[in-house]
């Protein structure tokens, strides 16, 4: 036991110090929740289940989750289910016949703007997910994830795609699961750690720890006999060989060229799918059909 503590004293001290710092910071920061600054929003409701896909209990559960998440990340989180064609509204908004793929985006943006959502200010930070169960003229059901303010800044095309995938995965279980996934994923993506871009994935930590441990164990097991302390020059007079001839003569060279297939949006940080709604507010986002 004495040997053990002595051997690991460095680790124990470091862990104690880190734990102390961590807990201290936690206590200081824990109470720091975001405070909503926008008093112009027309509603306190966040869950608009027009398509009636959720039971009352499920709706309440989502409201609770949203309330809690909003305070943590400082964003409005809105969920809308619909079961009607969005064509008429889209055409009116555009003043001409809108593309069928655009109906839902126009609807989502307008919904957000009309209710004057935004956590920090009107039309500010927040996100809205609209799920339309109605089959439009092309036979598809459309959904759309729309971002505003800092959520828009944060979300790259890849992240929007991922968000939609997470929601679709949930949908194969139940509508409730899908919408819960939406809120939770948003909470994750907008959390302080994720925002700073410094968050290290857990598996990396486990992997690194595992690797170091494996090397440590192997080294000590191998060295159980004693380590080699001679090198190639140990018995060389003067410590190095006499180089009589060292020549590297360039003979020829050839160049080959190939075209790189670039994936679009590579390296782009946030702001995915940006556009400006008819109300003049910018939104990002993306969706799909099923």
């Amino acid at each position: 036991m004495k040997q053990y503590i002595h051997y690991f004293r460095f680790f124990l001290i470091v862990i104690a110090v880190l734990l102390f710092v961590f807990l201290g910071l936690r206590l200081l920061v824990k109470n720091e929740e975001f405070i909503r600054m926008n008093d112009q929003t027309l509603t306190t409701e966040r869950v608009f289940d027009y398509a009636d896909k959720l039971s009352d209990e499920e709706e309440n559960a989502l409201r609770e989750l949203i309330k809690e998440t909003e305070r943590k990340i400082g964003c409005d989180i809105v969920l809308v289910t619909e079961n009607k064609s969005l064509k008429e509204q889209a055409d009116k908004d555009r003043g001409y016949e809108a593309y069928i793929e655009d109906y839902i985006m126009i609807y989502a943006d307008n919904f957000y703007d009309n209710q004057i959502f935004g956590f920090d200010k009107p039309y500010g930070d927040g996100a809205i997910f609209v799920d339309n169960w109605f089959r439009e003229a092309d036979g598809y059901q459309y959904y759309w994830f729309s971002t505003s303010g800092k959520v828009m800044d944060r979300y790259s095309n890849e992240m929007i795609e991922h968000m939609n995938q997470v929601i679709l995965d949930g949908l194969s279980v139940s509508p409730y699961q899908a919408y819960e996934n939406y809120v939770k994923q948003l909470g994750k993506d907008m959390s302080a750690g994720a925002l700073s871009g410094l968050s290290i994935p857990s598996y990396i930590i486990v992997l690194v720890a595992l690797l170091i441990t494996a090397i440590y164990t192997a080294v000590f097991l191998i060295q159980n006999n004693g380590r080699k302390t001679t090198v190639a020059t140990t018995y060389v007079n003067g410590g190095k060989p006499n180089l009589n001839q060292v020549q590297d003569i360039f003979l020829t060279k050839h160049i080959t060229t190939r075209v790189i297939e670039t994936s679009s949006g590579g390296g782009r940080q946030g702001g995915g799918g940006g556009h400006i709604s008819s109300g003049g507010h910018s939104h990002g986002g993306g969706g799909g059909r099923r």
């Binding site: 880190l18 750690g193 410094l198 968050s199 720890a209 170091i212 441990t213 440590y216 164990t217």
Partner: peptide, 28 residues
């Protein structure tokens, strides 16, 4: 002893890793 020391090292490394991550997250 191999299990104890290797296991301890692993646990200590994990703790340090997660604590550092935790601190980084609080700071940002």
């Amino acid at each position: 002893k191999v299990l104890l020391y290797s296991g301890s090292l692993f646990v200590f490394l994990l703790s340090i890793g997660f604590l550092i991550r935790g601190i980084m997250e609080v700071f940002s």
